[in-house]
């Protein structure tokens, strides 16, 4: 990659254009030098795609919570970009327990302490957690 080939495609979503990157490229004298880059289109596209997938899945889950098929745990788990395995580690529970908490029936039986722990993991208040979708 030559210095003049260093991509300058701004990552114009979710504040991605707030920082530039350093890349190494070959100058006219054949020597490597570091150059600032605004971003690179293929990477921007792939990252945007990953975020769009998150948004789509989150919207679908929100519907399921509102219609009473899933509990707010499922919604906030996805909002925090987690999956069941990761959330289980944070909660200090088995995956099957977390899965049970993701159902409205399991969620209704959660102790205050457990609700508090989930709220802390999601960085929200207990009220925000219990009132979501109502």
């Amino acid at each position: 990659m030559k210095v003049n080939e260093v991509p300058q495609d701004p990552k114009d979503f979710r504040e991605g254009d707030k920082i530039t990157k350093v890349m190494y490229a070959v100058g006219d004298d054949g020597k490597y030098t570091s150059v600032n880059s605004a971003g690179w289109e293929p990477d921007n596209f792939a990252t945007k795609q990953a975020w769009d997938a998150v948004d789509e899945e989150l919207a679908a889950t929100e519907q399921l919570v509102r219609s009473g098929q899933l509990s707010p745990i499922a919604y906030y788990m996805q909002k925090c970009l987690m999956d069941v395995a990761l959330l289980a580690k944070y909660a200090g529970k088995w995956q099957w327990q977390v899965k049970r908490h993701m159902k409205p029936s399991g969620f209704a039986k959660l102790s205050d302490a457990m609700l508090q722990r989930y709220a802390e993991i999601f960085n929200i208040s207990v009220t925000a957690l219990t009132q979501f979708g109502k």
Partner: peptide, 14 residues
């Protein structure tokens, strides 16, 4: 997409 993102893991020039 994930392969591309790892390939361009903050500033490697892709």
């Amino acid at each position: 997409g994930n392969v591309i993102r790892m390939q361009e893991e903050i500033g490697t020039g892709g």
